[in-house]
Design a protein around this nucleic acid. Structure first.
Length: 424
RNA sequence: GGAUAGGUGGCCGAGUGGUUGAAGGCACCGGUCUCGAAAACCGGCGUACCGGCAACGGUACCGUGAGUUCGAAUCUCACCCUGUCCGCCA
């Protein structure tokens, strides 16, 4: 969410930001309405507060007279009249503020200066690591997974529905190994605090990270309790310190959390649907960082490197892609996608998305820090990135490390966890 | 799920419907004292919004939301959360 002062003081910059995303045309009506409502809001506040001040003076006078044993009927009548006016004006003010707030919640974040303008065609490959294996002779992961008894899509569909998977035998063990490998890597070597979050969260939490109100259709919801299944651990973990003020000495700090992720994927039918590439429930280890505004650029690089390290340790070739403004997510100011090469599918798979949200999430979630004793609290900057998503990582392992006989070499770093060096 | 007790500032904790943003204590910051520290004493110490170049003024906030009233931390209702006991349960 943006500061509403933006509408008053820097509306030009806001429009530029939306234009860079290619979203100005669609959102211009909201922006101009927001500008108008922002002024209207202040006019209403002045009118209400003026009358409240008068009422307070009047009420004090009533008290004084009553103590002196005098009558105060005239003042009481005056107060009643003021009260009625205040009531009317407050209804108008509330309507204005609610509409203004709704508009602010619908406007996406602005991108940092070094993010290219335009749509996804303007994305930039920043660098590549490793040598992509030739697709020749490599079976896709769903074939290998089925042959080795690791992935059971049919029964996933029977038991839950399309887009749900059973990992079985070595598949289940591989999932468990990845969980431990990723969490150990980031907690022990990269200094993150290990967190095991709840996967059901309330509406305020979902709003804090930007999933609501705009993307309510994408989330699974419980009946009766109004809870949501998280689409990523980013949601509960970023909200850990919602409505709190941190001490500057606590920054920067990072959290690593494994969680299952639940996504309805409304509207993405037909995209990457083969195998386990896009499912309604999948596993992921997520990295979340809080920092001061001054260091968020450096922190994004650090976080992205942590995610890349995971891929490098698994020996999977990947590339880092800087997303153009129009391809950057709603809440993000700058995003790097990490894409790993899957020779069996013959495609680069997005296994991680690392973003800095500037103060956009922190303002929504009201996460602040105090720079120094006696100073005013400021919003922190939040960042997050996958470190990594399991299914696509599994696909890459099964394809990139595949042998001619259909067996798969286990990456060195997973051997202690898996207890073997070869699948099949 | 039932019963019951509660939710007040960073923490603890007072608070009769009328100068209560809120006593008192702790913590913290500054000062006096001291060679230094402790103790003692003095002073300071919330957040947000509106107006103002500023000084400053105004408004709101005592779990949340409605209501009663000229006036609500204080009264009424609903909801949320926490503690305790009972029931159920991995």
């Amino acid at each position: 969410m943006h500061d509403m002062r933006l509408l008053r003081e820097q509306v030009g910059a806001l429009r530029d930001g939306l234009r860079r995303r290619g979203a100005l045309e669609a959102l211009e009506p909201l922006v101009s309405e927001g500008e108008r409502l922002e002024q209207e809001r202040r006019t209403h506040i002045a009118a209400v507060e003026e009358r409240k001040a008068a009422r307070n003076v009047s009420s004090q006078e009533v008290a004084k007279r009553k103590r002196a044993g005098e009558g105060a009927d005239d003042l009481i009548a005056h107060g009643r009249q003021l009260g009625e006016e205040i009531g009317r004006l407050e209804v108008e003010l509330a309507a204005t503020e609610e509409r203004l707030h709704r508009i602010l919640l619908e406007l996406p974040n602005m991108n940092l200066a070094d993010v290219p303008d335009g749509d996804e065609s303007q994305n930039v490959i920043v660098h590549e690591w490793g040598t992509p294996r030739s697709p020749e002779g490599v079976k896709p992961h769903w074939e290998v997974g089925a042959t080795l008894g690791m992935i059971d899509l049919d029964r996933g569909a029977k038991v839950s529905g399309s887009g749900f998977v059973f990992y079985r035998g070595l598949g289940a063990r591989l999932v468990r190994s990845l969980l431990n490998f990723f969490v150990d890597l980031h907690a022990r070597e990269h200094g993150y605090e290990e967190v095991w979050p709840p996967v059901l969260v309330n509406r305020a939490t979902m709003t804090g990270t930007g999933q609501l109100p705009k993307f309510e259709d994408d989330a699974y919801q419980t009946m009766g309790d109004g809870l949501f299944l998280i689409p990523t651990a980013e949601v509960p973990v970023t909200n850990l310190y919602r409505d709190e003020i941190l001490d500057a000495s606590e920054l920067p700090r990072g959290f690593v959390a494994y969680s299952p992720c639940f996504r309805r994927e409304a509207g993405s039918a037909g995209k990457d649907t083969r195998g386990i590439l896009r499912t309604h429930e999948f596993d992921k280890v997520e990295l979340v960082r809080y920092c001061t505004p001054e260091e968020s650029g450096v922190q994004l690089e650090l976080l992205t490197r942590h995610a890349e390290t995971a891929l490098e340790k698994l020996g999977i070739p990947y590339r880092r892609k800087l997303l153009a403004a129009g391809d950057t997510g709603f809440s993000s100011a700058k995003t790097f996608d990490l894409e790993a090469w899957a020779p069996g599918v013959g495609a680069w798979l997005e296994v991680s998305s690392c973003s800095v949200f500037t103060d956009f999430q922190a303002r929504r979630a009201n996460i602040r820090y105090r720079p120094a004793k006696g100073e005013k609290p400021r919003f922190v900057h939040t960042l997050n990135g996958s470190g990594l998503a399991f299914p696509r990582t599994i696909a890459c392992i099964l394809e990139h490390h595949q042998n001619a006989d259909g067996s798969v070499n286990v990456p060195e770093v997973l051997r202690p966890y898996l207890g073997m060096d070869r699948l099949g």
